[in-house]
Design a protein around this nucleic acid. Structure first.
Length: 477
RNA sequence: CGGGGAGUGGCUCAGCCUGGUAGAGCACUUGGUUCGGGACCAAGGGGUCGCAGGUUCAAAUCCUGUCUCCCCGACCA
């Protein structure tokens, strides 16, 4: 079946692509830049969807669906927006055997077509806030692609909301960013920095963009989610207006926010090791694999091992865990250990005649790989406990890694030296030209200005001019 | 679009320099022995060597053209 994985030392990129394919998460497709998400990978996405969808709904959002194709003219209504997305658009020019009067673009994001509907739906301040979310696919024609992290077509959710005041919109923007932070940290066990993006890194058409930024095991940054305060830019372009409490017409204040299947890439690159995938238990498709060991056992023992295995599986399932019994007798136990380490099953339970004689089983956590002998009558409780510990320990480990690779830098020379060292906290005068120069000369981009980072005045590392406070620079995916 | 590399059974690749009946490992099929960290033995099935020209008695191999894919950059969630 699957062979050994490329070691991370050989090249993080190669290791990652190899892992995604060998763990059967996704494949490259014949369609350039697109991927096929296999059942193992899709199961993680479904778990992510389930959790996020509930979080959105608990805050009053409702799901809806808008067309895949957007009339080209819609995009042109918002100047910055069309400029930002133009190079990445796939366009439909023919349909029904004839050339179309007006081309349709395949949505790169849905602000424009959704505003067309919003404009019709909203009449009064009583219609606000309008809180909509869409689960959909979008397409952006990227020059270079990488499984999960950047594909031409990807799956995501995009939230689109309308508010009566700028203040309400800003609150929503920050609230949803916080939802993303909570999801990333509590479910994905992936520590993130929340903060504001610079002008040059913000969403095309937004007033302000906020992001969650994570550090991968190669110390590069991954923008894992964004939340935008769109102001009235799209409302003005599409005449999305309401009659206010003052009886006058006003443009709505809007937000949009999204996370995508890129999160799966982030999850993989945050936790996995040289033997394969590690998935945090709260999002894992399979929590426990029970491997019955019956090789040299007598028939009576085999029967007993099988019965106990299935009985234990039933108990674990009753406790809400996802369990498989790997009773394939054409594979050796050693093969199964390796295979489940590769595909990221959280917990392995070995059950053989020796264990039965002692009334116990062997339990092994995927991340630490320590064998523990657990009495069978405590197995369910112990499994739950170990999964919880694993969830916490994955987060702590990733957080220590990030913190250990985050540095304050105080000169441009130091910044160049540490370009590949992780997150660099540096003073910058706020000039986009300087930001561009740094990117050009070092490959470092601003990630965001973290809320958690106390802003104290200093001097720009490049120009020596005044800086309002440090911002995070890093190489990024 | 720039700079590298690769196209040979399902997968990973060797063979090419120096032309002469297409190979290995993995996977697959059958039988047997195995089975607590990726088992072994035996037998077997499966390939117009990316495509198109050319050179030659003879091309996976040499020449020309062409297509595709991967990696590194520019773009990006």
């Amino acid at each position: 079946m699957a062979e050994k994985l490329a070691p991370r030392e050989k090249g993080f990129s190669e290791w990652y692509v190899d892992l995604v394919q060998k763990a059967k998460l996704a494949d490259y497709s014949d369609v350039k830049g697109c991927m096929v998400i296999r059942p193992n990978g899709y199961a993680i996405w479904e778990n992510m969807q389930r959790v996020l969808d509930k979080m959105f709904k608990d805050l009053g959002h409702k799901n809806a669906y808008f067309p895949l194709l957007i009339p080209e003219s819609y995009l042109k209504k918002e100047a910055e927006h069309v400029e930002g997305f133009n190079p990445q658009l796939a366009v439909v020019t023919h349909a029904g055997g004839a050339k179309l009067e007006e081309p349709y673009v395949i949505r790169p994001t849905s602000e424009t077509i959704i505003n067309r509907s919003f404009a019709k739906w909203i009449q009064s301040y009583r219609d606000l806030p309008l809180l909509i979310n869409q689960w959909a696919n979008v397409m952006r024609w990227e020059m270079r692609t990488r499984l999960f992290l950047r594909t031409t077509e990807f799956l995501w959710q995009e939230g689109h909301t309308c508010h009566e005041t700028e203040d309400d919109a800003e609150k929503e923007t920050l609230q949803m960013l916080e939802v993303y932070r909570k999801f990333a940290e509590d479910y994905m066990a992936m520590p993130v920095m929340t903060g504001r993006k610079t002008e040059s890194e913000k969403f095309a058409g937004a007033l302000r963009t906020y992001s969650i930024e994570a550090m991968m095991q190669d110390k590069k940054a991954l923008q894992a989610g964004t939340s935008h305060n769109l102001g009235q830019n799209f409302a003005k372009a599409f005449d999305t207006m309401f009659q206010g409490r003052d009886g006058k017409q006003h443009h709505v204040w809007q937000t949009s926010w999204g996370v995508s299947t890129r999160l799966i890439g982030g999850l993989i690159m945050t936790h996995s090791d040289d033997t394969g995938l590690i998935v945090p238990p709260r999002l894992a498709p399979t929590h426990v694999v029970i491997i019955p060991i019956a090789g040299k056992a007598t028939d009576a023992e085999k029967t007993q091992v099988m019965e106990k295995s299935h009985a234990l599986a039933a108990d674990l399932k009753k406790a809400g865990l996802s369990v498989v019994v790997d009773d394939d007798d054409t594979k050796s136990p050693g093969w199964k250990y390796s295979e489940h380490e590769l595909i990221g099953t959280c917990l392995r339970v070995e059950l053989g005649p020796k264990d039965l004689a002692k009334g116990s089983c062997v339990m092994v956590r995927r991340d630490v790989k320590q064998k523990e002998f657990i009495p069978l009558d405590q197995a369910v409780g112990k499994a739950q406990e170990m999964l919880e510990q694993m969830q916490t320990s994955l987060f702590e480990k990733a957080k220590s890694f990030r913190d250990a690779n985050t540095f304050e830098v105080n000169s441009y020379e130091e910044m160049k030296e540490k370009a590949d060292a992780g997150f660099l906290l540096a003073h910058w005068n706020g000039d986009p030209k300087v930001e561009a120069r740094i990117k050009d000369e070092t490959g470092l981009t601003t990630r965001n200005r973290p809320f958690a980072l106390k802003q104290e005045a200093g001097k720009c590392v490049v120009t020596g001019e005044p800086s309002p406070g440090r911002i995070v620079f890093s190489k990024a995916y």
